[in-house]
Design a protein around this nucleic acid. Structure first.
Lengths: 231, 231
DNA sequence: GCGTCAAGTTGACGGTGTCAAGTCGGCTCT
DNA sequence: AGAGCCGACTTGACACCGTCAACTTGACGC
């Protein structure tokens, strides 16, 4: 197999690693499936023979993980961007949620791989993302809007968003509403408001529906007049 | 390959289908991974040669799906059981959520396969489950506790639960709290209360955190006295 | 110019899903 | 009772996969 690529010079072996990662990512995005990421296809695309991949990656799994791990950093950046300049801590969470969802839908393959590996929690990028959300939840607690351990609150928020985008990615043919942005918005609102409310209703007091509705009627009746941020 | 199994009599070919399904399910449960479900392993376990599987299943995917599809019915039964005898429509949803979560955690492999196939929404069992949740949401709307399309509300609730159990299944090594039941409970409460609250706060009125906190303080202060169902 | 050693290749192995063709054996019909 | 049919299953093969041990190549330092 006379390859197109010219052999790297001693000391520059790392170049191939980068080329393989690029080839693998392109393959992943083009096919939209991690099953198509065969070592042979990746190697061919990088202009190299199959076993050469083993010079830089322990096995196929290692390669797949390396490709996707890069996305964590971008996810965190996306969330920070979305929340930039927002003061209200609850709104910060809302913006993070929307950023999270749009990022996941733009990189469905990477997202799936990332969150399905049992090792995800060990990745520094993942920890950073989770810490960011936890801090945003902590800000809500500090502001008196939520109660409880920020980590627990963050897990709940993360769950809701992860569930939504997982379903959107895995079940594209489901009868989703036309307006995905509104759907995402609804779930973000549900998760945010739900965390606020659930963390404030004592566990022992589970108000019955009628009572809850009655109280919320009184509570929400006055809001449209008092707060119209015209979002 | 002289097999242990004796050849079925004409007209009884369907027997093998059942034996293959049983063997496949056992293999799935024992190994805890759908990757271990190779045609050769399944066939050997059923006491038959590999290509015989093709007499009853189009391919490996088809077999895997057939094995897991059976779980939908059990999931629906589980939710109905949990909600049995409960009147308050919001509590019905809460019970459903807990049933859903425990079922998923008890059948992690099947759950993963079921919800990750793009064809899930076409399965009658899946549609029945979704309809059941939608009806429970519709009951909340009828009772005046929630507002909006029941389907949209159901999607939100489903998302939250699916996200939680997906993370629990896929990231077993994450630093989860010791008490999983409480975690599930928190997410169920978040989803339930969140759907109620978000569906009642008009989209144009997004109360700032301080205002929301103030209103909820007033609202929830009186609850512990008025409702103590000692759950 | 030449040996060295990293960088990359060759060729092979066992395992996988899948298929075309063959074989077996109980049932029916004469 | 024997012939023959046809459904149930097996045989044998193919292409592809991840992976590894052994081999070759070629740029650099001396």
């Amino acid at each position: 197999m006379r390859s197109t690529r010219s052999r790297a010079r001693p000391g520059e072996g790392e170049k191939l690693r980068e080329e393989i990662l690029l080839a693998a990512e392109a393959l992943l995005v083009e096919t939209g499936s991690d099953g198509a990421l065969t070592l042979r296809a990746v190697a061919a695309r990088a202009g190299v023979t199959t076993p050469s991949v083993y010079l830089h990656f322990a096995n196929r799994d290692d390669l797949l993980e390396a490709v996707c791990l890069r996305s964590w950093g971008e996810l965190e950046r996306r969330m920070r961007e979305h929340a930039e300049g927002v003061d209200d801590p609850l709104r910060v969470l809302g913006r993070c949620g929307r950023g999270y969802a749009t990022f996941a839908l733009e990189h469905p393959v990477q997202y799936r791989v990332l969150l399905m590996r049992p090792s995800a929690h060990r990745s520094p990028g993942a920890r950073a993302c989770f810490r960011y959300v936890t801090e945003a939840a902590a800000a809500c607690v500090s502001a008196g809007i939520m109660r409880g351990r920020p980590e627990s609150l963050a897990v709940g928020l993360w769950s809701a968003l992860h569930g939504l985008v997982s379903l959107l990615i895995a079940q594209p043919e489901f009868d989703w509403p036309d307006d995905l942005d509104t759907l995402i918005d609804n779930v973000v609102r549900m998760a945010g408001f739900g965390t606020v409310l659930a963390s404030r209703i004592p566990r022992e007091a589970t108000p019955a529906s009628a009572q809850l509705a009655e109280g919320l009627d009184a509570l929400t009746a006055s809001w449209p007049e008092r707060d119209q941020p015209r979002r």
